[in-house]
């Protein structure tokens, strides 16, 4: 049980459902009775490592996302103590992108953030292994070994990462950030590990009444997000790259 499940124990996208069906039965009998791995994900004991049985993901319904609304961005800045400035050297973990289809003229608005890929290019290129993917699918930067080479920023197809360009003070104790290291959206890992199982942006979107963002465990067939992506069409941004992103979009 305390054996860490490494991200290498990945399950191919198509096989995931089948695995879950079988896995659930096995988990129920073979592993500690009464404690299911899905349950662990919802409120993991603090001394247990995160598990690959969970895949955190986000579903964004662009038809509900309002043009000009930046509630999610503001909430992210507050939660992670970002300055909120938008100069070329300022960090932005989540941003609103306005789209216009060149052929049809259709307009969409959506939040863009780290897509938490299953096969993240940033992790592939990082020379020291500071960019890594946690077992539960959250892609993070270990600032203790980030040397600030910015190769991950070159490699990310979503422009999701920022370099901290200057000295910082008064960080959120739960969200360490500092000069010279690269950073990006963490799926509010501090909230997830606390068992809140949501992110600041999603909370804000719901509070504003848009309900355009949904966060949850893609591997849990009973979760709202898993049910929704199973029922309705959704897509990855730059699906051609085959990165199996954790963030999916509807309506584009």
């Amino acid at each position: 049980m305390s054996q860490p499940v490494r991200p290498e124990d990945k399950i191919e996208n198509g096989e995931r459902r089948a695995f879950l069906a079988a896995g659930a039965a096995v988990a129920g009998t073979a592993i500690a009775p009464g404690v299911l791995l899905y349950g662990m994900a919802q409120a993991k004991p603090a001394d247990q490592p995160v598990s690959a049985k969970v895949r955190w993901g986000m579903l964004i319904d662009t038809t509900k996302c309002a043009t000009g609304c930046t509630e999610c961005v503001t909430a992210c800045n507050t939660e992670n103590s970002l300055s909120g400035k938008t100069g070329p050297q300022d960090s932005q973990w989540i941003r609103k992108v306005e789209l216009k289809n060149l052929q049809t003229g259709a307009r969409h608005s959506l939040p863009m953030l780290c897509q938490h890929c299953e096969h993240p290019p940033c992790v592939d290129v990082c020379p020291t292994g500071a960019s890594f993917r946690r077992a539960d699918g959250i892609v993070l930067v270990d600032r203790h070994i980030c040397i600030g080479c910015r190769y991950c920023m070159m490699a990310c197809p979503y422009k999701a990462r920022s370099l901290v360009h200057e000295n910082l003070t008064d960080q959120n104790p739960e969200v360490p950030r500092g000069k010279g290291c690269v950073e990006s959206c963490t799926f509010c890992v501090q909230k997830v590990d606390r068992g809140e199982n949501t992110t600041a942006c999603v909370e804000a979107c719901n509070a504003a009444g848009h309900k355009a963002m949904l966060f949850g465990d893609l591997n849990d067939p009973e979760s709202e997000i898993a049910k929704t992506v199973k029922t309705y069409a959704s897509t990855e941004v730059r699906a051609d790259l085959n990165l199996n992103t954790g963030v999916r979009y509807q309506g584009i």
Binding site: A24, Y38, G39, Q42, A43, R194, G195, D220, E222
Partner: peptide
């Protein structure tokens, strides 16, 4: 309130997923 909320959320979800896990 955050802690209380987290705790309140935990137990029903645990129960939930235990049931859910058995279903295919």
């Amino acid at each position: 309130k955050t802690e209380a909320a987290a705790e309140a959320k935990t137990s029903p979800l645990m129960a939930n997923t235990q049931n859910g896990g058995a279903k295919p």
